[in-house]
Design a protein around this nucleic acid. Structure first.
Lengths: 194, 194
DNA sequence: GGTATTAATTATCTTTTGTTAATGCGTAGC
DNA sequence: GCTACGCATTAACAAAAGATAATTAATACC
């Protein structure tokens, strides 16, 4: 594989999840296309059916809800991560979440229909979807549990420790909604801590 | 299949997820055993590695965290539902959650090692694990999103509408921690509403 | 059935968060 | 460079939730 290939990063990530033969890898990369999008670009709007998932080669993006006209961040993703409205992508139902880039992004776009075809022709790729779903579940569970276990202040402290990258690359009003609080409240917490 | 079989309910649930031939069904039921346990029985303790998942033929159970000596309910399950510390079950790592019965339970116990064997001998069962993980993710996402989108009072109202069974079968102090609040606060919300 | 325990409610007070508005800061665009 | 806009902070007040304790209700057990 060419070192300059846009699939280099993807290969590093996927091969940890599911070792593929060279032939399998070729058919796997075939379900992706390349796309560059600017900052503040909406890859998916609420209500649309998600037919794509994205692997981020470069940049940052977020999942967000819209409630009463307000944007509420559900998750942030950076280089070497997948981002998708997984519920909509899996069920092919209208999405409750939107996807918006936070920085200019270089993406590998995974087509749902092509993934389905590939899985049909080679059921081994069920393991890929399975691993994705399992990983997504475990990550989400850690996040969800913090809402019943921790106070907003503790959640912020944990974020500082576990995901400092978010703090560096994401504006604070987005972080506030991600933590389930208002920007004003987050500002107070930051003051209390410092 | 015998109508009185303990696998009757399981069959109804699984066949919706993954249609199986009679032969496949036989090998599938082979990975389960039957177990009856009383109320307040711990099927899994925090720190243990989960080697079992449970399908509830009868009864009710909960997943719970323990923080500072206090029990905090993460989820409730009833008849025809699966319950497991999925993170521990999947990763075979020490569980952050415990599983406790809320009522006397009749269970079908799924052995992790037998499931792995089965999946190895027939990769088609990857689809089963995949469907479970995907379902678990979608359900968890709906729950998790309510923590950033809704107030405790709205969460309680949603629960009333979407899962009234919980209110009927689960003590209120468990529901309170499930909603991320104290029993005192839940009592106040109930008063406000009525 | 009566007693002991546990659970739920109510009351009081403290702490935290939400709301609204004002101020200060930085950046983008002209 | 200036202006305008969005973002973060601060302030003041209202609303909600936490903590503790007392009371009432429900239940579990002998």
């Amino acid at each position: 594989m060419n070192v300059a290939s846009p699939f280099q990063q993807l290969h590093a990530v996927v091969s940890k999840m599911l070792p593929l033969t060279e032939k399998e890898w070729d058919s796997f990369t075939g379900i992706f296309t390349y796309r560059s999008v600017p900052k503040k670009f909406f890859l998916l709007q609420v209500g649309q059916v998600s037919r794509e998932a994205y692997f981020i080669n470069k940049g940052a993006a977020r999942l967000l809800f819209v409630k009463d006209g307000e944007e509420i961040s559900a998750n942030f993703m950076f280089e070497n991560g997948f981002i998708a409205s997984l519920e909509s992508f899996l069920l092919q139902a209208p999405s409750r979440q939107a996807i918006e880039t936070i920085e200019d992004c270089d993406l590998l776009v995974l087509s749902k229909s092509k993934l389905d075809e590939l899985t049909k022709s080679n059921p081994r790729f069920n393991s890929f979807s399975r691993a994705i779903a399992e990983m997504a579940f475990v990550m989400l569970q850690r996040r969800a549990s913090s809402f019943i276990l921790d106070s907003p202040e503790e959640r912020y402290q944990n974020m500082l420790k576990e995901k400092p990258e978010i703090l560096e690359r994401v504006p604070q009003h987005m972080i506030a909604s991600y933590l389930g609080i208002t920007p004003v409240s987050l500002s107070r917490i930051r003051k209390r801590i410092s």
